Simulated assay, not measured.
Amino acid sequence: MISPAATSALDDFLAQRAALSGASENTLKAYRSDLLDYLVFMTRHKGGPQGIAPLTAVSVSDMRAWMAHARGTGLGARSLSRKLSAVKSFYRWLAEHEVFDPTAVLSARAPKYQRKLPRPLPEDAARAVLDTVELQSQKDWIGARDTAVMTLLYGCGLRISEALGLTGKDAPLAPTLRIRGKGGKERLVPVLDAARDAVDTYLRLCPYPQEPDSPLFRGARGGALNPRQVQKVMEQTRLQLGLPASATPHAMRHSFATHLLSAGGDLRAIQELLGHASLSTTQTYTEVDSTRLMEIYNRTHPKA
């Protein structure tokens, strides 16, 4: 059982993350889950509840034991790196409040892992998705809705949650949208005429009234459109077009970034459009572009 003192410290840490860094609810849930796993392990590993004093005395061997245990449960290197990052953040905060040296924890090295590159669609495939997605529904307004959502993902680089988070007060779409993304971070996103037209078409056909606080995109029964429905219609579209399993709604956002970069877009500007906190995240698209270029080279060069 985790000690009350450790539980209280965890709650205080999460409250600070929410207040100072604007961490999203999902991020806070992930932090809580990762840190609870760590505290439960240390409780069992040490043979009793770990109050603040024992937590400040965690050794390098204790950290190695925790990481070995986590890998032994089948946890992948990427997931373990995320958990370790949460633990280190917690210990940095704890060290400031309890005044101790957290080196044993902070010196723990994350396991190496192969970073997965985004898998965008070719430009013709992305266009085919926009042309075909409306055919997956027998109701015109639902087909128009699905086209509008996909156009926002590809034309504006929105996440599904961001597109489905739009409300009636966002309609009709302005030339620029103010989007609140991960961690509550706001960004301004230019809206293409094609995206505005797609949303206007959907709104004309939608049988449900648009109120300022109602969701812009409605499900068949009038409630908020579920992300799973967006994923489902993409699966149907993918099968019809013969696209790979990597052709997901999020791949439309990847395609937005990759195609901008291929056309000479500035990396910093793309970072802002996507709402990435770190440029290193956006730089993965340069690796995608280089990989695709080499594939084309190897496939078409006369000496290949």
Results as ranks from 00 to 15, higher is better:
L177N: 15
R145N: 08
S214W: 08
K139R: 13
V199H: 02
P175V: 11
D200R: 13
K169L: 07
M150P: 07
I142M: 14
P212A: 04
D193Q: 11
D200C: 03
R180A: 12
M150F: 10
M150I: 08
E162L: 07
A174Q: 15
C156M: 03
R187E: 11
R178Y: 03
E186V: 08
G143S: 10
P175S: 04
P209M: 09
T151W: 01
A195F: 10
A174F: 01
E211Q: 15
V149L: 05
L173N: 03
R204L: 11
I179H: 06
L173F: 14
I160F: 07
A174Y: 07
A171F: 15
K169N: 14
L177Q: 12
A174W: 02
D213A: 13
A171Y: 15
R178T: 15
I160G: 05
P190H: 06
K182Y: 00
D140T: 08
A148H: 09
R204Y: 01
S161F: 00
P175N: 11
R159P: 05
K139D: 11
G155Q: 03
R204M: 07
D193A: 15
A195T: 12
W141S: 04
S214R: 12
L177W: 09
V191N: 13
V149K: 11
S161D: 04
C206Y: 04
R187A: 07
K139H: 12
D213T: 12
I160P: 12
E211R: 15
T147S: 07
D213L: 12
G165V: 07
D140Q: 13
M150Q: 00
P207F: 02
P209R: 13
D193P: 02
T201R: 14
Y154C: 05
P207S: 03
D213P: 04
S214E: 10
G157M: 08
T151E: 15
S161H: 04
Y208F: 15
T167Q: 15
G143F: 10
A198W: 01
D193S: 14
G168V: 09
I179D: 09
R180P: 00
G183R: 01
L158E: 11
D193R: 13
C156R: 01
L153W: 08
R204I: 01
G157L: 07
P172N: 12
G143I: 14
I179Q: 05
G168A: 05
P190D: 02
K182R: 00
S214H: 06
D200S: 02
G181H: 01
V191P: 02
G168S: 03
G157I: 08
D200K: 06
E186I: 03
V199Y: 02
R180S: 13
